Simulated assay, not measured.
Amino acid sequence: MSAPISALFGRGGAGLPPAEPLDFARLALPPSPNTCLAAPPGGHPQAHVTVPLLPVDAATAWPVLRRLGEGFPRTTLVRDWPERRQAQWVERSALMNYPDIVVAELVPAPGGAGLFLYSRSLFGWSDLGVNRRRVERWLAALDAALRRH
């Protein structure tokens, strides 16, 4: 997805194309190194990070995941699809206001829930590891939130 230049000047989701649900089964990662995909074991052949199954079911984890973005600076919920247990956020960089998209989806799994988490830059080729660090930060925050839940 290519974002219009107006996305650089917006706040939150302003200036971004309308959000659409992401089909993780059909997701093909771009050749650029400015993405990071986390998936449950065997969930996606291009996953950069394997996420162990969550110790709670998807229905229990959904409200925790849905609120997760509120804890990160410059992060705004763009849209959610509760029937899919999928949500999309935009996180803007502090210095240049670049918008990065974060999409998360919970899927039922035996004994818990699987999590897909995809972070990608809308501009540029390399992100210098920003999306990978973001995914790791979100996974740690979700783990901590589920422990408190």
Rank of each mutant, 00 (worst) to 15 (best):
49 V>T: 13
94 A>L: 10
111 G>A: 00
64 V>N: 01
140 A>C: 06
101 I>C: 14
96 M>S: 09
34 N>W: 01
98 Y>N: 13
7 A>Y: 06
135 V>S: 02
63 P>L: 07
108 P>I: 00
116 F>E: 04
33 P>S: 04
101 I>A: 13
49 V>W: 03
46 Q>D: 15
99 P>Q: 04
98 Y>I: 11
110 P>E: 08
13 G>C: 06
4 P>D: 08
45 P>D: 14
109 A>M: 05
124 G>N: 08
115 L>P: 08
101 I>W: 11
74 R>E: 10
115 L>I: 00
126 S>Q: 12
70 E>Q: 06
62 W>E: 09
43 G>M: 06
148 R>N: 12
12 G>F: 08
49 V>Y: 09
95 L>G: 03
58 A>M: 11
42 G>C: 10
102 V>L: 13
108 P>E: 04
110 P>Y: 05
2 S>F: 02
125 W>N: 11
122 L>P: 05
126 S>T: 11
136 E>F: 05
128 L>N: 11
100 D>Q: 12
70 E>I: 01
106 L>Y: 09
134 R>Q: 01
29 L>A: 06
76 T>W: 02
116 F>L: 09
105 E>W: 03
92 R>N: 05
136 E>T: 08
57 D>R: 02
64 V>M: 07
44 H>G: 10
30 P>V: 03
128 L>M: 15
120 R>E: 05
95 L>C: 05
139 L>Q: 03
63 P>H: 05
96 M>H: 08
6 S>A: 13
3 A>Q: 15
139 L>G: 02
8 L>N: 06
30 P>K: 04
90 V>C: 08
138 W>P: 07
132 R>Y: 03
87 A>G: 13
114 G>V: 10
54 L>D: 02
35 T>I: 15
44 H>I: 10
101 I>K: 09
86 Q>F: 12
92 R>T: 04
138 W>K: 05
43 G>A: 12
131 N>Q: 09
74 R>P: 15
148 R>D: 11
60 T>A: 14
40 P>T: 12
32 S>K: 10
11 R>M: 15
65 L>V: 01
118 Y>K: 02
6 S>Y: 07
76 T>Y: 00
95 L>A: 05
107 V>I: 08
53 L>W: 06
139 L>S: 07
36 C>E: 05
67 R>A: 12
133 R>H: 05
32 S>Y: 14
26 R>P: 12
